[in-house]
Design a protein around this nucleic acid. Sequence first.
DNA 1: CCTATACTCGATGCGTTTAATCGAGTATCG
DNA 2: CGATACTCGATTAAACGCATCGAGTATAGG
Lengths: 157, 157
Amino acid sequence: MISQKAKYALRAMVVLARLPAGETVLTQDLADTAAVPKRFLEHILLDLKARGLVASRRGKKGGYALLKAPESITFGAVLRIIDGPIAPLPCLSQTAYRRCADCPDEDACEIRHVFDQAYEATRRVLDKLTLRDAISGVDERMPKSSARAEIIQGIGI
Amino acid sequence: MISQKAKYALRAMVVLARLPAGETVLTQDLADTAAVPKRFLEHILLDLKARGLVASRRGKKGGYALLKAPESITFGAVLRIIDGPIAPLPCLSQTAYRRCADCPDEDACEIRHVFDQAYEATRRVLDKLTLRDAISGVDERMPKSSARAEIIQGIGI
DNA sequence: CCTATACTCGATGCGTTTAATCGAGTATCG
DNA sequence: CGATACTCGATTAAACGCATCGAGTATAGG
């Protein structure tokens, strides 16, 4: 199960992905739209910002916007930022490899071998599907990727 | 990530799957072989027993053995017993469906749609691969499925 | 330049889960 | 009948999840 926090993050990112080009959204509005506790959302957005997925502007007329095009933000990327490694075993993680303490030989580990296959199947989905995939088909009239640069420009990064 | 407990359970089950026909193994020996704290293993085995995956005999010459053939015990089955639902979202679980509290319309949930695909990919692996798959190729001289009935017989279930 | 607005961010609370350990109880073999 | 070994509820310490609070800082607009 993914964490509640990850669910919040993904819902917020989907809202941001639907945002018209050049617009930002206030944390409060984002919290209302995505149904996320505002105080909690702040922390989530800071994490996403630190990893370069969103940008923010302070003060009046402030708010958040995506820093990358929706089609270049995968579900896997968001999930890793919020929940950490997706891999079912630490010894399978690409982003945070850690040897199992009590495992003498990884290549001989039957459990690792099975979960390797499971993980690969999962990755093929989560590292492929993007925010664009999530919102397309549901609402066709949204800002196209070409307009995304303006948002970044407009926010002054 | 799967829990440490699930790792223990799977390691223990792999050891049991390798056991020659008709034999049982003491909890202590199983704990040593699979590198699991004995006291903790007892609880794990009780869970697996309650769900019909293993059988036990008390007293001298007691111990544990598989109650089903290794090829009919999937990794998913063990995982569900120990860690609960495998599904990344409660609203996707077949075994423990639960609506997300703040979701007005499941069919319109973009997050659900993406994770549905991820989950299906995972299930295709975990609900297909069995203990037999795990041990075959690593050690070819092990009890074949036909011998499994004797174990069940021998243990008096 | 001043102030209302809104992002920043460390600290804290607290209930749940995880990963065990303990000890008393009970069944079984020889 | 006694040694062995499974049974099982109680307890525990640490970590984690899910937030909330308050003080701080940057910015737009008057």
